[in-house]
Write a protein that binds this DNA or RNA. Structure first.
Lengths: 211, 211
DNA sequence: TGTACATCAGTGAACGCGCGTTCACTGATGTAC
DNA sequence: TGTACATCAGTGAACGCGCGTTCACTGATGTAC
């Protein structure tokens, strides 16, 4: 990946243009959060930053391209989460470490959930590019998780019927989806900290086999 | 819920019309599976069954209304799954029971995943009707799961830091989302039966505390 | 069993809005000397 | 420090497609007697 930033026609752009491009990306993210993908129009994005649709097309071929870039940025923000997932969780400190991971994941999710939602939809509907960016992001966490789980299985703390890779995927799936339920769960009495503690306990249990 | 089926203008319709309406619903589900929500047009749905868009509007005010009905139908198909989630799983038979639940869930998911995907997207983007239908469906499983988990916590098999309701939500989240990863996991060597066994082992562990 | 009428079901064709997209242009900034 | 020119950045305005939606109509089915 080059550091140069390009316009839709491929030319490298200067500082002023980069700022405009960034504003367009931010506006896209904002409208995605506020009104969702199904009502997202190029006109609205441009209007949001007080410019014309023609400007948008200077920088992106279409809306998907902008969202795809936002999804890549989300992946970047996900990378540091891996630090929380190093093998060696013990019965004594594992739960605390799991909690730290969940805290970091929840912050990440809060920042990017609107974009991640669209990324996942498009990936599941078969879009090649979104599928790629999702897989890359998921593998970040899954690779680390897989190692930890394999360790647990080898040590006999976890049952052999757990496939490490699939289990890792299940953990990621659980995190991702559960946070999507948050608004409704809040109405039914699951506060953010309840979700946090429960999720940490579950992950600790799944990974180490300790209960 | 009344058994009578109504046209968009509210009148009760006869057998022939019911058949047409059903064909429209089936065509909607089919196109949703094949090309996703973002490219779904009323014209395409009508064309699919060899009729005109005007016919579609006889039965539905818009595409959302048809999808919402498909989502309700999915909920009906989800109800029998509850039978697999009765308290009393033992260390001896719990894993088998969990496997039976997973089998049933996977069949359910295969049938309805395209519709569920859209239901979830619209629910998360704030649509009141889709949110309602999703919550109802999720609560079906969650109520049962919650009872089982509460039992485990009470018996000291599960840690007190697990909130039963949130844990139930986490189990549903894990099932739902993991199956969405299936296509990509298949490429990386997780077969359907691996996913099945791993998911069953995880659910068994989470619910009963046995490893 | 036939006829007249009522209601149900389906549709061809068009309208018009809204959005994506582009073009030809203006204004802003940078650079050479 | 000034001038001339090149390039970068941004845009007003319009075009036209495609889709949602509707209307006025035809044909099919049911019912009364």
């Amino acid at each position: 990946m080059s550091d140069d930033i390009h316009a839709a026609d491929g030319r490298i752009i200067g500082a002023r243009a980069q700022a405009t491009r960034r504003k367009l990306l931010d506006a896209t993210a904002k409208l995605l959060t506020e009104q969702g993908i199904l009502d997202l129009r190029v006109v609205d994005i441009s209007r949001e930053i007080g410019t014309s649709p023609a400007t948008f097309y200077h920088y992106f071929n279409d809306v998907d391209e902008a969202i795809l870039e936002l999804a890549s940025e989300a992946t970047e923000d996900e990378k540091p989460l891996v630090d929380h997932l190093k093998p060696g969780w013990t019965e004594a400190d594992g739960l605390r470490r799991a909690g730290e991971f969940v805290d970091a994941y929840m912050t990440f999710w809060d920042t990017h959930h609107a974009v991640l939602r669209v990324r996942n939809l498009k990936a599941e509907e078969g879009d090649r590019h979104f599928r790629k960016v999702r897989t890359e992001a998921n593998l970040l966490l899954m690779d680390s998780l897989q190692d930890m789980i394999r360790e647990g299985v080898a040590a006999g703390r976890l049952p052999k019927s757990l496939d490490p890779f699939t289990t890792a995927a299940a953990v990621v799936a659980m995190c991702e989806r559960l946070l999507g339920y948050q608004p409704e769960m809040a109405k039914r009495g699951s506060s953010k900290s309840t979700i946090r503690d429960t999720l940490a306990t579950l992950i600790f249990g799944i990974i180490t086999g300790h209960v």
